[in-house]
Design a protein around this nucleic acid. Structure first.
Lengths: 229, 229, 229, 229
DNA sequence: TATGAATGAGGATTCATTCAT
DNA sequence: GATGAATGAATCCTCATTCAT
């Protein structure tokens, strides 16, 4: 029938207006919708139906862009983590002030760029699904975790080398520095509303991080060492 | 009662031998299986079928012990975290030494009781599923998170009151104290194998926590205050 | 433990007190419980668990008395229909008054003996399940429906023969006489509460039957015939 | 239609041909299958699997059309009884003849539209399941029973007002008028085959209803009143 | 004889995936 | 390329039935 119609038909003008940029624009809308859905509901909980609706496309269209739910998930993580990491690294390398001040900027920078953003949902997502998606976990580890860790460790080493910080294990310290990032990311997604009233300390992420900075600077200070040691 | 009756009786029909442990032992096998399944697959991903098979019982039997999946999960949390928490609280209350030592015991105690255990998968689980299951999130918040936070905050207050710690915000500090617990729990489940080689600092949880303790004690020390303030 | 207790114990007296009459008494309790459950919930909706609890026995015991749910159901219907039919038949046969009065007694008698009783649940039950239980339907038809119909038809015939009623088809008339019995039985079980307010006419079964009698007597009256015909 | 359109049109992309009937035709096949299954097996006993197979669709497709079993059932009732009811109401309102004739048409109309149809299984169904599904019972009461009763009562009131019927209670009379509907619906489903031979009077529903009409008209006639009263 | 813990088949429902248009 | 109707495998849960004690 449609074959017949097509046969008799002069070349119809297919409604392209929207199409030209489809290949680029649509997938990115889908990815945005998927990021939202996955961070809100988790991998299993997110329904392709919802993602399609949010992205303004049909469910079938999803399969034009991605082979399936898993691949879509991986794409979301990959895409979402074209991270500000590089920028951060450069900013840190060119900084000339004290290491304490650098530490402060680093931590508050994370807050402004990630922690206080929708992006903070990604760590939660990775924590939740890493075991189920070894290859994406691998990717996340290589592209995000390890680089971020390296930057932080370098920051610590800088302070130690300059004598500003006491001699600490850079790896362990780096982990301790970023630990609250994870707590904050994790709790703020899922417990947010419930916690508003009952654990207000956690809701104000920035103030919490200020306290964290204070603790770190005191904990890392080189001078008191003489007295204690 | 029936035992007494049985005592005077001719050829008794006893049917308790097996029941006595059924009510206790079998459910605990189910709980163990459920803990494993939930931490491996997440709440939604864990299949009751699997849990039953792992526990060596039939699917229907699960429903003899627990009204449903959610209650089973709650039972796992209760058994795994709520009970230990009470024990911890008592141990802390009766401690007579310095607050620094108390802090050390608290942190390392967590490691021994939870962090180094399968139980460490539960926080990860909650992070992942809290948004999807508000009931469970509420339960976890009320039964685990808030009590644990209260204990930690009390510990901080103890140190501040005795003059051993500088005057800090107890809530924020409590959160900073437990932040690495969450990081450790989160990363060790899902990134474990991948991290073995590349971030060894995190794999040795106990050593990491020792560094954490060191940082905290320095960060909380009262004396340097005089100089700074 | 209990094994040890048993070991030391002299021969216990087994609690027989209730047992001697079990074979008779218990099944009847089960039947009563089952009647209630089936009429309330229907065959599929009634749970053996409930029936056992109501009867004060264990679920397993049910299987000592009846081979299964179906057989229990059949037994309930059979048992419940050791009906007052025979008594009714005799009462009608020995009645000496007018057929109109006899009709009145018959209808109101049904109300007192069945319609206003738990027994009224059985017709509903049969209506619901007759298709699923052909053999019990057969039994119900033979033991209840047909005999009841015969009695009613005989009553009509008596009136026609005496000239008190106009010459009607006794079978059809008998059915019309008993039709409201079924309506009442059916509606009062399941719509009772909902109807209390909105269809009060049906709730007062006796008043409704009085109106029915009035209609029947007028509809069957022999005299007006001459004028109309 | 779409063929014609296609003929004159430049090669349109039509995708209605199939949709047009999908939304209407497919669900109606499902409704037919569901009516059959429900009346045969009861609400609880009907399996969605069967309904789907009978309708020639997959189980999942059922959920495209109806949110679940209960809604499917309600749709069956709506389609089968609610719509016809409206038609009946209109027909009665515009009738100009005698109330006796109107009564006759009403009763025989029920026979043609419902009683002699598969639809007659629905009342039986409701009787059976009302107690288990209060939602559905409520729905049936509101959408079918009460409206049908109101129509019947209005019909009686019409006759009383015109002086054609004696002054009777319209509610009770309405119930008596419809009582045989229920008997017939109930018995014909489940006892049908058994009754063929032994209670032929009931099998010929139309003849039975003729007798019912005769009884009603005599029972309601106004004239004889003078003599009796 | 009586028990009730254990079983597992069966059914409603969800949702990722496919495919005709 | 885009659609969304259709599919059916997968999963939670129920409950009649069994059986060791």
């Amino acid at each position: 029938m449609s074959a017949a119609a097509a046969a008799q038909a002069p070349p119809t003008i297919r409604r392209e207006p929207r199409w030209q940029r489809r290949k680029d624009a649509r997938p990115s809308e889908v990815l945005a919708a998927a990021l939202a859905a996955f961070t809100e509901k988790g991998f299993a909980g997110a329904r392709l139906d919802d993602i399609a609706r949010r992205a303004g496309v049909s469910k079938g269209t999803l399969y034009l862009y991605f082979p399936g739910k898993e691949e879509l998930f991986k794409a979301v993580v990959r895409e979402g983590l074209v991270s500000p990491l590089a920028a951060v690294r450069e900013a840190l390398d060119s900084f000339a002030g004290s290491s304490a001040e650098l530490l402060r900027r680093f931590i508050l920078g994370w807050w402004d760029l990630v922690g206080n953003t929708r992006l903070a949902g990604l760590p939660k997502l990775m924590i939740a699904e890493a075991a189920n998606f070894p290859d994406i976990a691998r990717f996340y580890l290589d592209e995000v975790l390890l680089p971020a860790h390296a930057i932080t460790a370098r920051l610590v080493a800088r302070g130690v080398d300059s004598g500003e910080f006491r001699p600490v294990d850079t790896d362990k310290t780096a982990i301790l520095i970023t630990a609250p990032f994870i707590s904050i990311s994790a709790w703020r997604h899922g417990f947010d509303h419930a916690m508003q009233q009952e654990m207000p300390a956690l809701t104000d992420g920035r103030a919490l991080l200020e306290a964290h900075i204070e603790m770190l600077i005191r904990g890392l200070a080189a001078e008191p060492m003489e007295k204690r040691a």
